[in-house]
Write a protein that binds this DNA or RNA. Structure first.
Lengths: 241, 241
DNA sequence: CAGTTGAGTAACGTGGCTTAACTAACTACA
DNA sequence: TGTAGTTAGTTAAGCCACGTTACTCAACTG
């Protein structure tokens, strides 16, 4: 391990550390202000630096934002995957429940990052076209798709509740290589499940469910997710929490 | 009608007209920039006025935003209600479908206004506590609730797919006076339906479904809404579109 | 004619983005 | 070990833009 450190030149390590610190600081500022804006000046001040120094690491405000967006996707995807994989392979319903809960809790914990990736673009930000953000997004989403692929391959995926697959959607789904191993019917069901999960998550993360008591909100969420599972043909979770 | 105009003093009419123009201009600027920010300076410039003049109408940036948020809720609620009521009373499934489609299309048409009410708060904006925005929100939402109440009273509301109502949610739902005439089971189902609708709408409005062809997206949406209806115990639409 | 309202001008203050020029420290190599 | 090159960082400065207030003028109302 000590040997591995010297693999990477000292300077380069310091540099990446600084980059990480900048991003972390920007996120902290967003958390404080409750927005998706982080001023260069403030970041520098908090870090005990001067604003121009940041330009050594990010050519542009947009470049920082792009990095943050990619990180957010990766973090969300990783969190969902980890939570999903903490449930045994044979309990597919439980794995879906865990993944969904992770999605939800991540958004609650980090509403700014959630807004960063799933909300309106930040004022003044223009996304790099065909860019790495899109890739990061599909990487994160494939964590959900993996669950359905898994279910399909082990034969545990039942028929979806909506079975009259729309022809237009069939054509479209077949165009996506990475999902080609899931039957269209189930792929469509997955999209429904995702939308359903996403909707609850948005409402809660942006404070539109404050009038529902916390325990009731938990219950409502579980019901929403179970409903989505049932509709998608996923088996019920092994243990009821 | 001509007599009615003189009911309201000339000055007051001019004043409200200006207020409307300010709000409309702000919205146009938001549409142009694709954000939820509208600078006072820009509004004034577009209107052929000077910035300070706006302070005659809005004491504050926040005051303008508050007005815009309330307008957005009202507009959304009105749009949904109109679309819903354009379908015959006896076709409850069709009414739900129409309402949902209106919700979706409104968000597509006005992503900025949609973000204004359902996204992160605008940078620097602090909502007036216990304020009129909350009232406007529940007014808009009651347009959906009305549909379920209607269905319940005419006896056309079947059992929801999820029937083991969570006890915590029961207590909470009973606390809401305005929904007290809908059985808890169905109220919960309504929340599920709303979340599902909202999720799809958010994803589409914020460009996360661009990879799905337009016709396929329409199909996907209709399936999502039909699924939600089935789960909530609403009858199927009379005519299949 | 007196009072009220709308609007403009000028000005203040602030604050942030960004570039340019310079300094200090570190790295590597002879 | 000394020296040349590179990198991180600072200071200074320019620039622009926005929000907001105070003051003044014009127009309308009654």
């Amino acid at each position: 391990m000590t040997a591995a450190q010297s693999e990477v030149p000292r300077r380069e390590r310091a540099r990446t550390a600084t980059i990480e610190e900048i991003k972390a600081t920007a996120l902290n500022l967003m958390r404080e202000t409750g927005t998706t804006n982080a001023r260069f000046t403030d970041i520098a001040r908090v870090m005990g630096m001067t604003p121009p120094a940041l330009y050594r690491y990010f050519a542009d405000h947009d470049e920082l934002l792009t990095a943050l967006i990619i990180d957010a996707y990766d973090d969300l995807g990783r969190t969902v995957a980890e939570s999903r994989d903490s449930v045994p392979d044979n309990d597919l319903g439980g794995r879906w429940l865990a993944a969904a809960e992770a999605y939800r809790q991540w958004a609650r914990r980090e509403p700014q990052q959630f807004a960063l990736i799933f909300g309106l673009p930040v004022p003044g930000y223009v996304a790099p076209q065909e860019g790495p953000t899109t890739e990061a997004a599909s990487r994160a989403m494939s964590q959900l798709a993996a669950l359905f692929a898994e279910a399909h391959h082990t034969g545990m995926l039942q028929h979806a509740l909506i079975r009259d697959v729309e022809p237009a959607f069939t054509r479209c789904a077949e165009g996506e290589d990475k999902f080609s191993d899931i039957p269209t019917e189930n792929f469509q069901a997955m999209m429904h499940a995702w939308a359903s999960l996403h909707g609850f998550t948005c409402l809660e993360a942006f404070n539109h469910l404050d009038w529902v008591e916390p325990e009731a909100r938990d219950a409502l969420f579980r019901a929403q997710v179970r409903l989505a599972a049932k509709a998608a043909g996923l088996p019920a979770p092994a243990r009821v929490r």
